[in-house]
Simulated assay, not measured.
Amino acid sequence: MDLKKIFSTPNPIIGVVHLLPLPTSPRWNGDLNKVIDRAEQEATALAAGGVDGMIIENFFDAPFAKDRVDPAIVSAMTAIIQRLLNLVMLPVGINVLRNDARSAMAIASTCGCQFIRVNVLTGVMATDQGLIEGNAWELLRYRRELGSDVAIFADVLVKHARPLGIPNLTVAVQDTIERGLADAVILSGWATGSPPSLEDLELAVNAAKGTPVLIGSGADWDNIGTLMQAADGVIVASSLKRNGRIEEPIDPIRVQSFVEAAREIVTPEEKVSVPVKPR
């Protein structure tokens, strides 16, 4: 897949909008307007800061269902995403946590979004939600039934999880692409805010054989220049939040500073200045 079919620039920077708790989630407070207002503020901050795209996810619905979410969550996400699509002109992706790829595909196809993120597309992962099994067959079949061209960005050895059996990054990447038919793969560290190593990124890129490999977590001002030497793009959330705290809203100044740093891809032959990290 050529990422330039979705994004206007190579090596896209994709910001994440973490939705406040949605209806039926444990921390839902009964006010959808508050969720919408926060989402609109964050989408605007991402667009103003210069990102190339964004992912909308129900991050604050934790603890998550491991597969199907309640229909009220799907309805709320659909309504919110339609508002955001009218607000900013960016490619938009959907991630329905923990692993409701079918609902993500339905929302994306209905709203005209360009891609979805799937935490477990192939294999079996032990998580805090229990065992999650990938179901690429169902998702790909559903996409065909919808007549959709929504791209599938799939995590490999996803964070906050451990694979059953011996973890082998090369095999996992190859299975996700060749057997799961992912359009791009995502490599993260072990948890939210934890980056993958440069060595693992290089290994994943070699295994992917031309399929895009994205950084899925832990990118910040200090490491993005190095990590982007290997990766084809980055998904970023925590570093863009006010004071770097995951529960805070997105700070447009931090977005702009991160985008500037990510554009400066450091090579061994050339050192470049990196913008100062805001306090």
Results as ranks from 00 to 15, higher is better:
residue 89 M to F: 05
residue 188 S to P: 05
residue 84 L to P: 00
residue 30 G to N: 14
residue 206 N to C: 10
residue 75 S to F: 10
residue 161 A to N: 04
residue 198 L to W: 09
residue 128 D to P: 14
residue 41 Q to M: 15
residue 122 T to H: 11
residue 50 G to Y: 02
residue 235 I to R: 05
residue 191 A to R: 15
residue 157 L to C: 09
residue 24 T to S: 04
residue 19 L to R: 01
residue 141 R to D: 11
residue 137 W to V: 09
residue 92 V to W: 00
residue 28 W to R: 06
residue 220 D to Q: 07
residue 36 I to T: 15
residue 90 L to W: 01
residue 23 P to A: 03
residue 65 A to W: 07
residue 38 R to D: 05
residue 277 K to Y: 12
residue 59 F to M: 03
residue 242 R to C: 07
residue 270 E to K: 04
residue 217 S to Q: 07
residue 24 T to H: 06
residue 279 R to G: 11
residue 32 L to H: 02
residue 109 S to G: 10
residue 264 E to R: 11
residue 78 T to I: 12
residue 139 L to N: 13
residue 139 L to Y: 04
residue 170 T to S: 15
residue 190 W to G: 05
residue 201 L to W: 11
residue 96 V to I: 03
residue 35 V to G: 01
residue 70 D to Y: 08
residue 237 A to Q: 04
residue 33 N to C: 09
residue 32 L to F: 10
residue 53 G to Y: 00
residue 139 L to D: 14
residue 173 V to C: 05
residue 147 G to P: 01
residue 238 S to A: 12
residue 146 L to Q: 08
residue 87 L to N: 04
residue 61 D to G: 05
residue 51 V to F: 11
residue 174 Q to K: 13
residue 245 R to K: 13
residue 10 P to I: 04
residue 179 R to S: 13
residue 172 A to W: 01
residue 184 A to N: 01
residue 240 L to M: 12
residue 39 A to T: 04
residue 53 G to R: 05
residue 161 A to D: 06
residue 38 R to W: 08
residue 185 V to M: 06
residue 191 A to N: 14
residue 115 F to R: 05
residue 241 K to C: 08
residue 41 Q to C: 15
residue 143 R to G: 08
residue 233 G to L: 00
residue 147 G to I: 15
residue 223 N to W: 01
residue 220 D to H: 09
residue 136 A to N: 06
residue 34 K to M: 09
residue 52 D to L: 08
residue 233 G to T: 09
residue 98 R to E: 00
residue 52 D to A: 11
residue 258 F to A: 09
residue 84 L to K: 00
residue 166 I to M: 14
residue 199 E to L: 07
residue 214 L to W: 00
residue 247 E to V: 12
residue 87 L to Q: 09
residue 76 A to M: 09
residue 263 R to C: 12
residue 162 R to Y: 10
residue 224 I to A: 05
residue 1 M to H: 07
residue 160 H to E: 14
residue 12 P to T: 06
residue 157 L to S: 03
residue 58 N to H: 07
residue 131 L to P: 11
residue 224 I to W: 00
residue 213 V to C: 12
residue 108 A to E: 06
residue 166 I to H: 15
residue 203 L to A: 06
residue 112 G to Y: 08
residue 182 A to S: 08
residue 219 A to R: 02
residue 39 A to M: 09
residue 135 N to T: 14
residue 48 A to M: 14
residue 232 D to T: 11
residue 241 K to L: 08
